[in-house]
């Protein structure tokens, strides 16, 4: 039946649904065009040096007049190099991932498979709650509790144990540093990783698991032989979703990372800065730049961050969809 009779109400609803469908596209395109337009002067001024330069300098705001660099007005001496922030983002995100993926996997395995009965529901609820905690609360706790504890207790201990590893030892001077930022981000991305892996684990049909147990396998053996092959790709999917969240964390990281400028991190006790935290933290300073170039530079940082999270999120969706499709195929034929 091709002809569906439409009342006026249907047409109105249809229009609203159409707008709803277009809305995400409009928002994404709108944001992207703002970022590209805002950052254009920066690409003209800095070119590739934006990615390789270490100095983030607004220039001499008290000079008599702006200078012209590659056709763009900036205060004399200005240079916008984002290497420190790109490196900081990469370090915090990947180190947090290295800690959060195993942790998330064990949480998922426990709450999705090994724990039974009422405790499973409780565990699942707690993980969901953790995912819902606003990140700024993690930041506050990190600043007030984790940072001093790490600087005065854990850090010196770790130094004594790992004293021959170059990157992992060093004098603890700033309480807010790479390590505290990694701890805070890890705790924030564990729920999303755990939830993704658990969702796949729970989809493995109960009959398969029971057959395994009936064959005489232990719970752990059944897990490794039956559940793990599907959980494997979910781990990757969950990791990439977690990476997407880690890249965008702003306030919590700003509070505990140490706000490094112009200096590359030497060890895990160095202050760092991430792209997202820099946009938030440097905004007020950027607003005092009369040439507005500093704001364009923050827009350029935003564009890089946008591109990174966009790629990461698409990758995550593709992988997670593929693993659930695989599982569906197996269970249909199983």
């Amino acid at each position: 039946m091709r002809f569906i009779r439409q009342r006026r109400a249907d047409r109105v609803v249809g229009a609203l649904l159409g707008m709803g469908a277009l809305a995400p596209l409009v928002v994404v395109v709108g944001l992207l065009s703002y970022l590209v337009e805002s950052s254009w002067p920066v690409w003209r001024m800095m070119g590739w040096h934006f990615f390789t330069g270490q100095l983030w300098n607004l220039g001499n705001l008290y000079a008599a007049r702006p200078a012209i660099v590659h056709g763009v007005p900036v205060m004399p001496g200005a240079s916008f190099g984002a290497l420190v922030f790109i490196l900081g983002t990469a370090l915090t995100s990947f180190m947090a991932l290295a800690l959060a993926v195993p942790l998330g996997f064990f949480v998922a395995a426990a709450s999705g498979y090994f724990v039974h009965g009422r405790w499973r529901v409780v565990m699942a609820g707690l993980v969901e709650m953790m995912a819902g905690i606003p990140s700024v609360i993690f930041g506050l706790w990190g600043l007030m509790v984790v940072a001093p504890a790490w600087a005065h207790h854990v850090g010196p201990l770790l130094n004594r144990v790992l004293h021959h590893l170059p990157f992992f030892t060093g004098p603890v001077q700033s309480e807010t540093n790479l390590t505290v930022a990694v701890v805070v981000i890890t705790l924030m991305i564990v729920p999303i990783i755990a939830a993704t892996i658990r969702a796949v684990m729970e989809r493995v049909p109960r009959e398969l698991v029971e057959s395994g147990l009936a064959l005489g396998w232990t719970e752990a053996e059944t897990f490794w032989r039956l559940v793990w092959p599907y959980a494997r790709s979910a781990v990757i999917g969950g990791a990439i979703l977690g990476l997407g969240r880690a890249l965008g964390e702003t306030m919590a990281v700003l509070m505990v990372s140490g706000d490094a400028l112009n200096v590359l991190p030497r060890n895990i006790y160095s202050s760092i800065s991430t792209m997202a935290a820099t946009i938030a933290g440097q905004l007020d300073a950027a607003l005092t730049d009369p040439t507005k170039m500093a704001i364009h530079a923050l827009g350029a940082l935003g564009l890089v961050l946008f591109a990174a999270t966009f790629v990461v999120n698409i990758l995550a969706r593709v992988i997670v969809n593929r693993s659930t499709a695989q599982l569906r195929a197996v269970t249909k034929n199983g």
Partner: peptide
């Protein structure tokens, strides 16, 4: 130079 946001040289161990 001098500014409300100076171009702080990289000093190891500096706290902000």
């Amino acid at each position: 130079g001098f500014s409300t946001s100076p171009n702080w040289p990289a000093v190891s161990g500096e706290v902000s």
